[in-house]
Amino acid sequence: MSVLKIKDVSKIFANGTVRAVDNFSLDVADGELVCLLGPSGSGKSTLLRMVGGFERPTSGLMIINGEDITHVPPEKRPTGMVFQSHALWTHMNVFKNLAFGLKLRKVAPDEIKRRVEGVLDLVGLGGYGTRHVAQLSGGQQQRVALARSLVLEPKILLLDEPFASLDQHLRERLREEVRDIQQRLKITTLFVTHGQDEALSMADRIVVMRDGKTEQIDRPDIVYREPQTPFVAGFIGTMNLIEGTVSNGIFSKAGYSTPLPVSDGPAILAVRPEALDLTVANDNAQGKVHRVTDYGTHGLVDLELLDSTRVKAMVSHPDLFRAGQGVRLAPKAIAAYRDNAVIHRA
């Protein structure tokens, strides 16, 4: 059964024509972690804030556990939000930050103490209760913010780029911790990020958003392997997107051609760098090596087609290639798009 149901929700901001969220629908199952992934301005935060009750949808419905909460204010929603900048209350110590919500709910003091300490242990901050917020590192502050939401045992946990202000290393660690905690508590979670790594490594499902609309909703591996639109293909991982034309079952673009069994017309050919084999060719080359980067374990070749369209290929022996060399391309797996939809995959 779905815990959260978002139905045809749109948000148009009062000041004008921006459709921050456009006819968005999503069902989130119990205990699921769904990542909202998209570029800046795609409406991720706006959507999350509508679930939390901080923005009112212009139209559409929000349902939690079968109850319509579209117009319920945030303080009455069973959601817990972790903000990008931790938003801790700096005039309270860690314990009081966590206890505040429980106090408002008139929980008995010894019960408050027990629960706060339990959650502090859970986020790895046991014994930090008397610390002041200012005496914590950025990562610890974010843990406190997470604990502050968790201690109230919300039905749905909402995280809006909670690690955006932390360094790479810490971000990766906290990502794992959050995933662990989420799975241990089996808490339904919506996680906003514009980092694809974060989404791919954490999510049960990913919602790729663009201009307030859904581009694709799928498991991470499927989003990666079978992107439904050229936008998703380009946004998740690295993808070569070559715009060309198909005629008589042959896709061609500036001297490069490959069989593509679809009807005639324009098409976008999508090939991952790791799915593109290169061979050195002096005669009838299809492209020219522009730059070779050696990463130790593998190499990346930047090449140009004859009309200087850029293409990337991953190679296992970068020392075989030199800038200026002619190459032929042999894709092992391709997808083709037309009118924003997949027309072929092989």
């Binding site: 303080e75 900048s85 938003a87 109230l152």
Partner: peptide, 18 residues
């Protein structure tokens, strides 16, 4: 007083006067 600090308070259940 940041907006987020206030929203966080509403999120944990504080009404406006609280």
């Amino acid at each position: 007083v940041s907006n987020q600090a206030i929203e966080a308070a509403r999120d944990v259940g504080a009404r406006k006067l609280q």
